[in-house]
């Protein structure tokens, strides 16, 4: 029997990796990947608590969340694709035309 804490630790490690990616990466695709990691760490939490509390709605929410993550990724990649078409790169440091 695996204790709940293990799942939570796993989830926080995954989240921290995502966090690190968000902070350090400059490539748009990698950023989106990091975002997915953070989102899915939350999913892990949801499923874990759902199981340990014997409540199905947590798992239902996870399904919703995955669907929304898909939508988010779709939009994100569409934007990146559009930027790439315009400027031939997806380095977010150089995308600064809206900066003050």
């Amino acid at each position: 029997m695996i204790p709940l804490t293990y799942y939570l630790i796993l989830s926080s490690i995954v989240f921290s990796i995502g966090l690190y990616g968000i902070m350090s990466q400059r490539n748009g695709v990698r950023l989106l990947m990091s975002v997915e990691l953070m989102l899915n760490s939350a999913n892990i939490n949801l499923v874990a608590f759902s199981s340990y509390n014997d409540d199905m709605s947590g798992q239902v929410f996870t399904l919703f969340s995955i669907a929304l993550a898909a939508a988010e990724a779709v939009i994100g990649f569409a934007i990146l694709l559009s930027i790439f078409r315009m400027r031939d790169m997806i380095n977010i440091d150089d995308i600064n035309i809206l900066r003050w």
Binding site: A67, A70, V74, S82
Partner: peptide
């Protein structure tokens, strides 16, 4: 509906 919107949006943007 959200997914449909995202789909249409993504197609429009990309």
């Amino acid at each position: 509906l959200v997914l449909l919107g995202a789909l249409i949006g993504a197609v429009y943007i990309a």
